[in-house]
């Protein structure tokens, strides 16, 4: 029953996130969910979400395959490094993590465009990176409250 509830929750989350992505182009709204999964330290869940989110973003994007895999892979690495130093549920950690992801989004997109000889609008990319930074804590907080097994205030 609990597994089914979790499954339904993730379906609802992904649907909501894709709706957000539809209205804010260039932004990944699945990231906060992935962060939540990383915080739960459920490796199987993280693995399937990694595969699913990568396929969704690669399929809807128009760069050659690899950018989304690097995007989510980078998040795992960043999370592992950050959680060594900080408490992973702390809001300061989330804020710093979001800032780093915004920067990572900018650098990764710029790098992938450079290696694929694709022209990039730096102004738009910068704007999207800032929105990405701001949107992560917001969606994460909502998802954190709504997720089964989590209580408001960060306690599990």
């Amino acid at each position: 029953m609990k597994t089914l509830y979790r499954f339904v929750w993730w379906i609802a989350y992904i649907s909501g996130a894709l709706l957000v992505q539809r209205f804010i182009p260039g932004v990944d709204a699945l990231v906060p969910g992935f962060l939540l999964a990383l915080q739960e330290q459920n490796r199987q869940q993280c693995f399937w979400l990694f595969i699913l989110f990568t396929l969704i973003q690669e399929g809807t994007g128009n760069l050659l395959f690899g950018a989304a895999a690097l995007w989510y892979g980078g998040q795992v690495l960043l999370f592992r490094m950050g959680s060594i130093i900080f408490v992973k549920d702390n809001i300061i950690f989330i804020a710093m993590y979001s800032g780093c992801l915004g920067l990572y989004h900018f650098l990764l997109t710029w790098l992938m465009c450079a290696v694929q000889a694709v022209h990039v609008d730096f102004e738009a990319l910068l704007r999207e990176s800032v929105i990405q930074t701001l949107i992560i804590p917001l969606i994460w907080a909502l998802a954190h409250i709504a997720k089964p097994g989590h209580a408001p205030g960060g306690a599990q």
Partner: peptide
């Protein structure tokens, strides 16, 4: 059926 969508949608497509 769809316009620009997601973080990897860099091109105008």
């Amino acid at each position: 059926i769809a316009k620009r969508f997601g973080p990897q949608a860099v091109l105008k497509t």
